[in-house]
Design a protein around this nucleic acid. Sequence first.
DNA 1: TTTGCATATGTAAGCGCTTACATCTGCCGA
DNA 2: TCGGCAGATGTAAGCGCTTACATATGCAAA
Lengths: 340, 340
Amino acid sequence: MSSIRSVPTLDDVAKSAGVSTATVSRCLNSPGQVVESTRLRVMRAVEELGYTPNFGARVMAAKRTFTVGAIIPTMENAIFARGLQAFQEELHSRNYTLLVASSAYRPEIEEEQIRALVARGADGLLLIGHDRDPSLREYLRRQNVPALVAWTVSADTPQPSVGFDNRAAMRAMTDEVLKLGHKRVGVISAISTGNDRVRQRIEGIRDAMQANGFDPDTLAITETAYGIENGAEAFDLLMRAEPRPTVLICGNDVLAVGALRRARERGLDVPGDVSITGFDDMELARIVTPALTTVGVPHREMGRIAARELIDMIENDSPGSTVELKTVLKMRESLSVPKP
Amino acid sequence: MSSIRSVPTLDDVAKSAGVSTATVSRCLNSPGQVVESTRLRVMRAVEELGYTPNFGARVMAAKRTFTVGAIIPTMENAIFARGLQAFQEELHSRNYTLLVASSAYRPEIEEEQIRALVARGADGLLLIGHDRDPSLREYLRRQNVPALVAWTVSADTPQPSVGFDNRAAMRAMTDEVLKLGHKRVGVISAISTGNDRVRQRIEGIRDAMQANGFDPDTLAITETAYGIENGAEAFDLLMRAEPRPTVLICGNDVLAVGALRRARERGLDVPGDVSITGFDDMELARIVTPALTTVGVPHREMGRIAARELIDMIENDSPGSTVELKTVLKMRESLSVPKP
DNA sequence: TTTGCATATGTAAGCGCTTACATCTGCCGA
DNA sequence: TCGGCAGATGTAAGCGCTTACATATGCAAA
């Protein structure tokens, strides 16, 4: 037995069971190769000593961890929650463990987290969005760690991704808005720097403007950080314009809800005085009054498919494929025809 | 140089820089011990080769990872989000990395995650609530991994924890409710099995009943899973009673918001026809109409303090202390005197 | 000049595990 | 009876890093 009160090792188990370390290792990793009686004896020793494998050692020797990492921009609210949960469930059913880290929407932190997760032996990574220093892709390639991008798809990057077309989705929403007769459109967007999804959504709005005979450059866009309060402030800012917008298209539900609240605080009726639309269809959207018209995203499906794709990349050394999911307009109460 | 296109090791760097592996290691871990010129040379080699330390090896040799793990019951919504974010920020400022896993409120999964994180070399763990198989505590003790419990405090467990007194907080809320003259109280609670916080909150309600001359056993309690929809269903269930309750005390904001929505759907005025209270003061609570009267919890402070405590336990081998934070009643619009 | 010491660097022993390969056992067919 | 073989187990070589200890270097003091 090794020193008192220290964590038992494979060696301790081997000694205690009277076999070699190889046999113990085999009991744990490929029990089929060990004869029943030996295995029982070994397992008993494992029990008795309360042995747990040392992960570092295992990684070093085997080079597989059955761990995948996900780095999401934020845990502060639920945008990524549902998708991530589904991702985790699928992984779990395939015997992988998910480790999550958050980047707080900051590229340096994301880079740190990527390296941290890779260093800890993640077999694969789930990343959100394409915007990212190219050196990171190179790094992952060299480390031989496959990465899958989610929450967006994009034809013009080589990286596999599973998600939806942010641009087309937002264009569809804006088409709807313009079709109702809105002429003065305000946009409350998240910060576009370093965030391709945000930029694509804005492009989608512009596409629709153009297609409907408006000059996209007349759009009043305000960018602000993620947060209900920020949505509220942006609301005030945009509604100061003369004449004021009849509709506020928001880049996500959180901003939209902030705008909604501020409208109420200002005594403005939604959608009577001003229409408001969101994006993501978080649970929030159905709870507020009036219920938010928004873009529905297949979070759970995305998570599940992402897990499968990533595991495929890991296990079969596959380059991974890109799968595009459909979004759907959720017409609820916060959007209507503009006041005449 | 080692084989083409494989991950560079310390050895490669050492060769390339013309020094020993020890020197490279020192450059990386305690640069002060290495003379400037050598260090520069080594760092250049590191750059050129794109070297990153192998974590497994490092853990094995150094037995420290500067990683802490947190296992939370759910990522599906924001209850733990704010606290966790603060926790992460504080850790980050002290050079620790946070890895998060979720247990989906299931003990077996929590156990798995605990082992996974420990196996991956977590220097310490943040756990939510005290309810947990004792063998896990024993396991952590043997593995020498300190664990801190958050989101609750409890006098009668030896484990250090930082959080608030769920029982007292809920008692205060209930006191307030009863003081307003409510006599028929319904309770929508989360599932109490394996969740000490939920049980304490229920106890708090009973305490207040007792203290105000009511028989706690007359309480109509319904337990349901976490989720807005579940809150809505519980609302229907409780409101079927004759005579029906004048107030619904909910174990958390999510359930309360569900109840709120269903009330609206049923054409019932809140708080006119029925009062509703929550717990947690999530962002949600201020957004719904009417704004939710709830119990405010110092999430960020809790997260920050938890990080400090845990690091103290890790670095100074301290047993850890228990710190209790204050909650505060957030009186908003969803609670008023009962209809006569 | 020599000695002694501080400082910089090198050497090599693990850390706990997996696995290729070697060895041993027992049983089969010839 | 014995060779051959399959199956069970053992042996030992790493995996990539840190660090105690050994060695080398340079400089101040004697």
